[in-house]
Amino acid sequence: MTTNASASEAGAGPWLVLGLGNPGPDYAGNRHNVGFMVADLLAARMGGKFKSHKSRAQVVEGRLGTPGVSSHRVVVAKPMSFMNVSGGPATALRDFYKLPVERLVVIHDELDIDYGVLRLKKGGGDNGHNGLKSITKSLGRDYFRVRFGVGRPPGRMQVADYVLKDFSSTERKELDYFTDRAADAVESLIVDGLERAQGTYNS
């Protein structure tokens, strides 16, 4: 599959969209949980509700895209393991749905991008992100990524402290807009292919 191939060019079977985060109410508003936030939006668009799955994830199945025109089967999942062992649920989901890693889209926070900015890519390094590190160790690098910028920590704040804090009150004013745009980017990646989605959202 080429990086600009759409789902229709990639053969049968669903796409797996994996939003990264940590489970539980204590983490719900953290910067590190923005993948969960976007996954929740996608589930709402699909008109489904998350259900527990034997892969140690919450899963919702449905379709994304324009009904009857460019609609594609999609499984949206949130690992219920902690971030640094996301590879386990990702592998179990891949095996259960029998899909190639090239049909996996991972949504995650990205420190080296300004807040709210998106970058779509395929492959590459993990940049110290423990969730990506775990997935790459389990599945290799050939999956798609929707990288949601959260910016660098201020001053001498440790990275771990920063990503495990909630978005600031200033950031929350635009958070709904940015997560909605990220959900749009996921849909575009699946329906239009990487190259076209990058042209629209890598700005």
Rank of each mutant, 00 (worst) to 15 (best):
A39T: 03
L175M: 08
R147C: 06
L139N: 00
T91W: 15
G128K: 01
E110K: 00
V105T: 08
P153F: 08
S138R: 12
V163R: 08
G13L: 03
G65W: 15
M80D: 14
D126E: 15
H129C: 04
G123F: 04
A92H: 12
F82D: 00
Q198Y: 05
L93M: 12
R156I: 09
E102Q: 13
S6E: 00
L189K: 10
L164Q: 02
D180K: 07
K173P: 06
N130A: 07
V34K: 01
V17F: 15
K49M: 14
F167W: 07
Q198V: 03
G151N: 08
E102S: 13
L139K: 03
P25K: 07
L120S: 05
P154W: 11
Y27K: 03
S188R: 08
G131R: 07
T3G: 10
D114Q: 14
T170N: 15
G62S: 07
N127T: 08
E195I: 02
L111N: 13
D26Q: 08
G65H: 15
V74M: 13
T136A: 12
H108K: 14
P79A: 05
L42H: 10
A185P: 06
I113D: 10
G155F: 10
N33Q: 02
A10R: 11
D192Y: 01
V191E: 14
L104N: 06
T179H: 03
P25G: 06
R147S: 01
V76D: 07
K165G: 02
K78R: 06
S6R: 11
V101S: 11
A28E: 09
R147H: 03
F178V: 06
L93R: 10
R73L: 12
T179F: 03
V85H: 02
K98Y: 07
N33K: 04
T91V: 05
L99Y: 10
G116A: 14
A44T: 14
G62Q: 13
L118V: 02
S8Y: 00
N130D: 11
N22M: 04
P25D: 15
A90I: 02
S203R: 04
D112M: 05
N30A: 06
K54V: 04
M1P: 11
V60I: 06
L120H: 00
A77C: 05
V105I: 08
N202M: 06
P23K: 01
A43T: 06
T2P: 04
S8H: 00
V34R: 12
V76G: 09
G151H: 14
D166M: 02
Q198N: 02
R152F: 04
T66D: 13
S8C: 00
T200Q: 12
T200I: 07
T200P: 01
G123H: 01
P89Y: 06
L111E: 13
T200C: 03
L120R: 00
T2E: 00
A44R: 14
R145L: 15
G155T: 05
Y201A: 13
L16F: 10
L18K: 07
R31N: 07
Y177L: 15
V76P: 14
L18N: 09
R172N: 15
F96I: 07
E9I: 01
M37F: 05
